[in-house]
């Protein structure tokens, strides 16, 4: 069953900007799905339409088989949204923000109190339940929004850049939490600018650019398309010129630093043997960028708009 099904979705804003040019997208139930794209590509508009915050120009959206127009109430009941920016009342307490959201979904008071407690404990916020929300740190505010989105036990959870601006420690704990939620059966759609996050968490991926889906596949297949890895080598001694080794593209980016494009079919062993032969000693090496980032940039740069 599809958790989300989008058909020929278009959106043109009043100022004439065509944000979505007819996208089709399907997300399987139980999936951990990445929706990526550069700023202004149409991600937020797509999420806005799915979550009823933006009116579509045409097309259809259904959530767990419920059409968002024909069965609005049922479709919305399946959805939880963690938006990009803080959007709760800064004067309300943490508990009331989460509890009231349960009420909007028609959850009876007793059950709403139980779920509020459960979600706040899950987000490690129970101790802060009576704190006025404006006094919370940025990371805590994001966790409040996640607790609020989960309080009605949605089957589909959309996380719109949930880790933007939070420190590494909180980001890692949020990853762990997202994986647990997904393992418990909740379908997750994640948008993020941290491609490492998408690569490590998501099983399937769609990339949107200029209002069109330019790629929609599983993460493993996408990563398998990467033929070249880029490595940065730190050298023991400075070099005046980049060495020339057949099969590799090598650039000198500092006196003691080389950037090497390594084709997967050749690998690293031959590179090191040739460097040793030229008396070049390598102290350390690291990936220049993560793999998905490289693919992402290739897709955004090379795919013509319209290839959906």
């Amino acid at each position: 069953m599809n958790a989300l099904s989008i058909r020929n979705l278009k959106k043109t804003y009043n100022n004439g900007f065509e944000a979505l040019k007819g996208i089709d997208l399907e997300v399987q139930a139980g999936d951990f799905f990445a929706l990526l794209g550069p700023n202004g590509a149409g991600k937020s508009t797509t999420i806005g339409i799915i979550s009823s915050l933006v009116n579509e120009s045409s097309g259809s959206v259904s959530i767990f088989g419920h059409d968002l127009k024909a069965e609005r109430s049922l479709a919305k009941s399946c959805l939880g949204l963690v938006p990009q920016e803080v959007n709760f009342n800064q004067f309300d307490t943490v508990k009331s923000i989460v509890f009231n959201q349960a009420g909007y979904y028609g959850t009876p008071r007793k059950l709403a109190l139980q779920r509020t407690e459960h979600c706040l404990k899950q987000m490690d916020l129970w101790d802060k339940r009576d704190t006025v929300s404006r006094r919370l740190s940025g990371g805590m505010k994001r966790r409040v929004m996640i607790a609020r989105a989960m309080v009605h036990a949605p089957k589909l959870l959309i996380l719109d850049e949930p880790t933007a601006g939070v420190d590494i420690e909180i980001r890692r704990s949020m990853w762990k939490m997202m994986q647990e939620v997904n393992q418990q059966g909740t379908t997750i759609i994640l948008t993020t600018h941290y491609l490492e996050e998408a690569e490590s968490l998501c099983r399937n991926i769609a990339i949107i650019d200029q209002g069109r889906i330019v790629e929609n596949t599983d993460m493993a297949s996408l990563l398998a398309r990467l033929h070249v890895d880029h490595f940065v080598l730190d050298l023991a001694e400075p070099l005046a010129h980049a060495p020339v080794i057949s099969g590799y593209q090598i650039q000198r980016i500092a006196d003691k630093v080389l950037d090497v494009a390594v084709p997967k079919e050749i690998g690293l062993n031959y590179l090191f043997s040739q460097l040793s032969a030229q008396n070049i000693n390598v102290v350390s090496l690291k990936n220049k960028s993560n793999r998905l980032e490289q693919l992402f940039l290739n897709l955004i740069d090379t795919k013509p708009a319209g290839n959906s």
């Binding site: 979550s51 949204l81 959007n87 028609g106």
Partner: peptide, 18 residues
Amino acid sequence: YSTKFQRNIEELLVAPVP
């Protein structure tokens, strides 16, 4: 208006509240 200004109107718009 405060609900609009602080964007917590989105809490109601996302939920199945007619």
